[in-house]
Simulated scan of single mutants.
Amino acid sequence: MERDFLRDGREADDLSELEDGMVQVMRTIYDPEIPVPIWDLGLIYGWTIEDAPEADGKDVTVKMTLTAPNCPAAETLPAEVEQGVNALEGVAHAKIDLVFVPSYSMEMLSDEARLTLGFM
Protein backbone atom coordinates (compact mmCIF):
# COMPACT_ATOMS: atom_id res chain seq x y z
CA MET A 1 0.00 0.00 0.00
CA GLU A 2 1.34 3.39 -0.94
CA ARG A 3 0.24 6.84 0.20
CA ASP A 4 1.27 10.02 -1.56
CA PHE A 5 0.15 12.99 0.51
CA LEU A 6 1.48 15.50 -2.01
CA ARG A 7 -0.88 14.12 -4.62
CA ASP A 8 -3.83 13.04 -2.46
CA GLY A 9 -3.66 15.38 0.55
CA ARG A 10 -3.18 14.46 4.19
CA GLU A 11 -6.85 14.26 5.12
CA ALA A 12 -7.36 10.63 4.08
CA ASP A 13 -10.38 9.09 5.76
CA ASP A 14 -9.40 5.49 5.08
CA LEU A 15 -6.21 5.18 7.13
CA SER A 16 -5.50 1.74 8.54
CA GLU A 17 -4.87 1.28 12.25
CA LEU A 18 -1.13 1.16 11.54
CA GLU A 19 -1.26 4.34 9.45
CA ASP A 20 -3.24 6.11 12.15
CA GLY A 21 -0.55 5.12 14.65
CA MET A 22 2.11 6.47 12.31
CA VAL A 23 0.32 9.82 12.09
CA GLN A 24 0.07 9.93 15.88
CA VAL A 25 3.83 9.30 16.16
CA MET A 26 4.54 12.11 13.70
CA ARG A 27 2.33 14.47 15.67
CA THR A 28 4.66 14.01 18.66
CA ILE A 29 7.85 14.89 16.75
CA TYR A 30 8.72 18.56 16.46
CA ASP A 31 11.26 20.45 14.39
CA PRO A 32 13.44 21.95 17.16
CA GLU A 33 13.26 25.41 15.60
CA ILE A 34 9.52 25.47 14.89
CA PRO A 35 6.87 24.76 17.56
CA VAL A 36 4.77 22.60 15.21
CA PRO A 37 4.72 18.80 14.75
CA ILE A 38 6.39 17.57 11.58
CA TRP A 39 3.05 16.14 10.43
CA ASP A 40 1.46 19.60 10.46
CA LEU A 41 4.54 21.16 8.88
CA GLY A 42 3.95 18.88 5.90
CA LEU A 43 7.36 17.21 6.12
CA ILE A 44 5.85 13.75 5.55
CA TYR A 45 5.28 13.26 1.82
CA GLY A 46 3.97 9.71 2.05
CA TRP A 47 4.81 6.10 2.83
CA THR A 48 4.82 2.59 1.54
CA ILE A 49 3.68 -0.34 3.67
CA GLU A 50 4.44 -3.90 2.55
CA ASP A 51 4.37 -7.34 4.12
CA ALA A 52 7.75 -8.12 5.66
CA PRO A 53 9.17 -11.11 3.77
CA GLU A 54 11.29 -12.44 6.63
CA ALA A 55 9.34 -11.40 9.72
CA ASP A 56 5.88 -10.88 11.13
CA GLY A 57 4.56 -7.42 10.52
CA LYS A 58 5.06 -4.80 7.89
CA ASP A 59 8.00 -3.07 6.30
CA VAL A 60 7.39 0.68 6.25
CA THR A 61 9.23 3.27 4.20
CA VAL A 62 8.41 6.85 5.13
CA LYS A 63 9.08 9.48 2.49
CA MET A 64 9.90 12.75 4.18
CA THR A 65 11.72 16.01 3.66
CA LEU A 66 13.18 18.77 5.77
CA THR A 67 12.41 22.48 5.74
CA ALA A 68 15.79 22.98 4.02
CA PRO A 69 18.59 20.62 2.89
CA ASN A 70 20.95 22.20 5.44
CA CYS A 71 18.41 21.96 8.27
CA PRO A 72 20.17 21.64 11.64
CA ALA A 73 17.78 18.80 12.52
CA ALA A 74 18.81 16.73 9.49
CA GLU A 75 20.49 14.16 11.74
CA THR A 76 17.78 13.93 14.39
CA LEU A 77 14.35 14.25 12.75
CA PRO A 78 14.60 11.28 10.34
CA ALA A 79 16.00 9.13 13.16
CA GLU A 80 13.13 10.12 15.46
CA VAL A 81 10.58 9.21 12.80
CA GLU A 82 12.28 5.88 12.12
CA GLN A 83 12.44 5.01 15.83
CA GLY A 84 8.85 6.05 16.44
CA VAL A 85 7.47 4.03 13.53
CA ASN A 86 9.67 1.03 14.40
CA ALA A 87 8.15 1.05 17.90
CA LEU A 88 4.60 0.62 16.59
CA GLU A 89 2.94 -2.76 16.92
CA GLY A 90 2.82 -4.49 13.57
CA VAL A 91 5.97 -2.90 12.17
CA ALA A 92 8.80 -5.30 11.38
CA HIS A 93 11.15 -2.66 10.00
CA ALA A 94 10.88 1.06 9.26
CA LYS A 95 13.21 3.17 7.18
CA ILE A 96 13.26 6.75 5.97
CA ASP A 97 13.51 7.92 2.39
CA LEU A 98 14.75 11.51 2.81
CA VAL A 99 13.92 13.50 -0.32
CA PHE A 100 14.25 17.11 -1.42
CA VAL A 101 12.15 16.99 -4.58
CA PRO A 102 9.74 18.58 -4.55
CA SER A 103 11.25 21.26 -2.36
CA TYR A 104 9.52 22.06 0.90
CA SER A 105 7.35 25.17 0.85
CA MET A 106 5.07 26.95 3.30
CA GLU A 107 2.11 25.77 1.20
CA MET A 108 2.59 22.35 2.81
CA LEU A 109 1.60 23.66 6.25
CA SER A 110 -1.67 22.42 7.70
CA ASP A 111 -4.27 24.97 8.77
CA GLU A 112 -3.40 24.17 12.38
CA ALA A 113 0.27 24.94 11.71
CA ARG A 114 -0.64 28.18 9.93
CA LEU A 115 -2.70 29.24 12.94
CA THR A 116 0.05 28.31 15.41
CA LEU A 117 2.65 30.22 13.42
CA GLY A 118 0.42 33.28 12.95
CA PHE A 119 -0.15 32.90 9.21
CA MET A 120 -3.96 32.88 9.54
Rank of each mutant, 00 (worst) to 15 (best):
L88Q: 12
P32K: 08
E80A: 12
G84F: 00
G90R: 12
T67V: 12
G90L: 03
E2I: 14
R27Q: 15
L77W: 07
T61A: 05
F119C: 05
D56A: 05
V91T: 05
E89R: 10
A52D: 09
T48V: 02
I96Y: 00
A94E: 03
S16E: 10
A68N: 10
Y104H: 09
H93T: 02
N86P: 11
D40E: 15
P102Y: 10
S103Q: 13
E82C: 13
T28D: 15
L18V: 06
S110I: 10
R114A: 01
A12P: 07
L109E: 10
Q83A: 14
I96Q: 01
E107V: 05
T28E: 15
A92Q: 02
A113V: 08
N70G: 14
F100D: 07
N86T: 05
N70A: 15
F5D: 08
E11K: 15
L98H: 08
P72W: 05
L88I: 01
L98P: 12
D14T: 04
N86C: 06
M22D: 08
D4S: 13
T67W: 10
I96E: 00
G90T: 07
T28S: 15
E107W: 01
R27S: 03
R3P: 06
N86Y: 01
Y45N: 06
Q24I: 00
M106I: 15
V60E: 03
M26G: 03
V36C: 05
K63V: 02
L41W: 09
P78A: 03
G84H: 10
A92K: 01
K63T: 12
L43V: 11
E80K: 13
D111H: 06
A52W: 00
V60H: 08
A73C: 11
D14I: 02
P102H: 11
S16H: 01
L43H: 08
E89I: 06
W47G: 03
P72H: 10
V25P: 13
L43C: 07
K95P: 01
V62R: 04
F119N: 04
G9F: 05
M106T: 15
V23W: 05
F5Q: 08
M26T: 07
M1W: 02
I44L: 04
D111P: 02
R10K: 14
V36H: 14
A87N: 14
C71V: 01
D97L: 03
D97H: 02
V62M: 12
D4W: 12
D20H: 04
A79W: 01
L115Q: 12
P37T: 02
A87C: 08
R27L: 14
C71A: 09
D51E: 14
H93M: 00
A113R: 13
G118Y: 14
E11I: 02
A87D: 15
M22C: 04
Y45M: 11
L18G: 06
L15Y: 11
T61E: 10
Q83R: 15
L117Q: 10
L115N: 07
G46L: 08
I44P: 04
P32D: 07
E19A: 03
V99Q: 15
L15I: 04
M22K: 07
E2M: 09
T116C: 00
P37Y: 07
R114G: 02
L15V: 04
I29W: 03
N70M: 14
L117K: 11
R7P: 03
V91H: 09
D4V: 11
R27Y: 01
E50G: 00
N86A: 10
E17H: 09
I49S: 03
M1Q: 09
M1V: 11
